[in-house]
Simulated assay, not measured.
Amino acid sequence: MKTSSLWQVFIPLRKGQEEAVQDWLEDFFQTPACAYTAADSDAASVSVYLSEKPAPSTLAELRERLRHLPTLVRHARQGAGDVLVKRLTARDWVKAWQRNIRPIRIGKALLIRPTWDTTPPRPGQQLIVLDPGLSFGTGHHPTTHYCLQELVRLSRRGTATFLDLGTGSGLLAIAAARLGYRRITALDNDPEAVRVARANARANGVGRQIRFFQADVASYTLPRHPAFDVVAANLTDELLVQHAARIAGCAASRGHLVLAGILTERFPAVQKTYADLGLQLLRRRDRGEWTGATFGVP
C-alpha cells in the first residue's frame, strides 16, 4: 500500500516561547500545531503538519511575520524563529505528533490523556480521555490548565454548580462532572465545537450530566434556575471586557468567576473592568504571555 507524504513546518524556539508561538502558528495555517519542550535543556519547538508543501511565498510571509512576533523579539537567541520544512511519511508524522502529546496531571485529582496513551491514574485520580482536535482545550495550554486547577480547588462534591462559557472541546465541563459538580452547563458559539464536546462527554461517560448548547456570550441569558457557583470564561480579553456585566451576572452571590485567555499585558484592563462591577480579585497566575485570574462575587 502506498504511503502518502506530509510536510512538517518546524520552528525551533527557546523554552517559554512555545505556547504563544503555537497559538500564533495555528492561526496562520488554520490547523492544529504541536509544541515540544526538551526535559534536559532550554530547547523547544512548534510544528504544524500539512498535506501539501507550503509555497515559497507562504514561507516568506511566515518568516517575515515571525521576525516581528513579540515573543521572539523579546526572547531572541540564535536559531530561534527559523522556519524549517521537512517531508515525512504519514506513518512518521502520526508517531511524531502523538509523541508530543503528553498526559496531564492536575494535582491528585485529575489525569487527562489521549486515547493512545496508557498512563494509569493514581489512586483517587479521576481519568479523562480526550484526543487533541480542532476544538480548543486539551489542557496543555496555560489558560485551560489554570481553569482546571481552579475547578479542582473550588470543587465541593455534590454541592457546587458550574457554567462553562466557551466550552471548546468540553474538557472543563467533563472535568467538573468528574469532580462532582452537580449542575453543569456548557456553551459555545461554534456548532462543531458543541458537537465534539458532546461526543467527548459521552466517551467519558458523563454525557447525561452536562447540558451542552450553542450560544454566544453576547446573547446568552441565564435560564430560570439560580446562577452558578463557579463560572469559567476561557475567552479573549476583548470579550471578557466587552461582556463583563453579562459574564459576571452568571455567577451566584459568593460564587467564583474564573477568567482565562488573557494576555498578561491586557490584564490590568480586565481587572479594572471586573473591579468596577464589585468583584474582588482572589487569585492570579501568569505563565508566559498568559494570565488566569479568579474573582469573588459579593
Rank of each mutant, 00 (worst) to 15 (best):
T143P: 12
I210G: 02
Y181V: 00
A38S: 13
V297I: 13
T159L: 15
I210K: 03
Q125H: 10
A244K: 00
D23R: 06
D82W: 00
N100Y: 07
L110Q: 02
T119E: 09
D190N: 15
H140K: 01
A275Y: 00
V85N: 09
R202H: 12
L111H: 06
L179H: 02
T71P: 05
K2M: 13
D131Y: 11
R105H: 10
P120Q: 13
D117I: 03
A232P: 09
R202Q: 06
D92G: 12
R87Y: 05
A233C: 04
A96W: 09
L148Q: 01
R153W: 08
L281E: 12
I128G: 09
Q149F: 02
R105F: 01
L187S: 04
R153Y: 08
E289D: 15
S51K: 15
L66T: 00
F10G: 04
T264S: 12
K2F: 10
F28A: 02
L172V: 10
R195D: 02
V9H: 13
V194I: 15
E19Q: 12
R183E: 13
K95G: 10
P268L: 13
R77N: 05
P70S: 08
R285C: 08
R122C: 05
Y146Q: 06
F228Q: 10
E265I: 01
V297G: 00
I101F: 14
T221C: 13
R63S: 12
G296L: 08
D82S: 11
L59C: 11
H243V: 03
L279C: 07
G170R: 10
